[in-house]
């Protein structure tokens, strides 16, 4: 009996050890990721949140100022203008690069030489936004830019002096056009992959049933592509909230702050005026808006999908 008990105990212990090790293993695997997320994402987020209640200026020890930074934002006309421009960017970033990419994906499936166009349309996506900004700054230059020169050569002399980046809201739309040129390729790839992976049967059945013209993409392709459209639109919207580099390179949010978005205002407050408390408050506002938007958007889309 004693021998049996003694024999069982180490076996049980070994089994318990294996079971503990087995249950710990997944945690160990995710630990590095958790560590990096905690150190490089959560900690800066919490620090930014705390900083938004201080008068931090990057030089002296910050003092707590309560909600003063948030109150300053709400009463600032520049903040209102930034918020308006940000919303324009978000809507345009979804409608133009995603909408255009979807239309192009449908078209490229049917045209001869589709591969060439796919490559040509994807190439701008490989450029950094700052590089695209510099390139288009030269194109939009009112005195020596290619665009005005081309307009003049084509006989649109009244448009050949246009100050694309110096008049509001034209400057915002010019930058959105640049952004569209640059980001349409990435969305196009998402949609082309989506189109290729669609089940053939419902498409062929729809064709046999007489679906043609615009009815086919609207009633058949689009519903089947919903997961891809959802992801592309969500990513585009979040990028619209965050857009900074392109604007900074092309107009620095000017002239007269007319093309500033929340991200640019945040940068100006934090790194030019060194109002780092105000800058952190703007960062919190951007994050909250993007978070709320993503939550409601995804919930809405998921609800629709579950009904389907």
């Amino acid at each position: 009996m004693t021998v049996t008990q003694q024999g069982r105990t180490p076996a049980r212990r070994a089994s318990a050890r294996r079971s503990t090790a087995a249950s710990l293993a997944p945690y160990l695997f995710v630990l590095p990721a958790v560590f990096f997320v905690a150190v490089f994402l959560l900690a800066p987020m919490l620090y930014t949140f705390w900083q938004s209640f201080t008068d931090a200026d990057g030089l002296r020890t910050p003092n707590l100022v309560g909600l003063r930074n948030y109150a300053e934002l709400l009463t600032s006309s520049n903040f209102t203008l930034s918020l308006r421009n940000t919303l324009i960017w978000v809507v345009a970033s979804v409608v133009l690069p995603v909408g255009l990419a979807f239309a192009l994906a449908l078209a490229l499936e049917r045209v001869v030489g589709g591969n060439f166009f796919r490559t040509a349309l994807y190439l701008p996506s490989t450029l950094a936004a700052a590089a695209a900004g510099v390139l288009f700054s030269f194109i939009f230059d009112p005195t020596s830019g290619v665009l005005n020169a081309a307009l003049g050569a084509l006989g649109f002399s009244s448009l050949s002096q246009t100050e694309w980046l110096f008049r509001s809201p034209l400057n915002t739309w010019s930058m959105i056009a640049t952004y569209t040129w640059q980001s349409v390729g990435a969305n196009l790839m998402i949609f082309l992959i989506g189109l290729q992976s669609l089940p053939r049967e419902p498409l062929e059945a729809a064709k046999i049933d007489g679906a043609s013209g615009l009815k086919f993409p609207r009633l058949i392709t689009l519903p089947l592509m919903t997961p891809y459209v959802t992801i592309a639109a969500l990513m585009a919207a979040v990028n619209g909230f965050k857009v900074f580099d392109l604007i900074w390179v092309m107009t620095q949010g000017g002239p007269a702050r007319s093309s500033e978005t929340l991200a640019v205002t945040m940068y100006r407050e934090g790194f030019i005026l060194f109002h780092q408390g105000v800058s952190a408050a703007i960062a919190v506002v951007i994050s909250l808006i993007a978070l709320a938007f993503s939550y409601f958007y995804l919930r809405n889309v998921m609800d629709k999908e579950s009904h389907v």
């Binding site: 700054s137 230059d141 009112p142 005195t143 980046l165 110096f166 620095q252």
Partner: peptide, 13 residues
């Protein structure tokens, strides 16, 4: 025109 590049940050028009 005020849109002429000064050359300090962008074009030197």
């Amino acid at each position: 025109p005020a849109s002429t590049g000064f050359g300090s940050g962008g074009t030197n028009g």
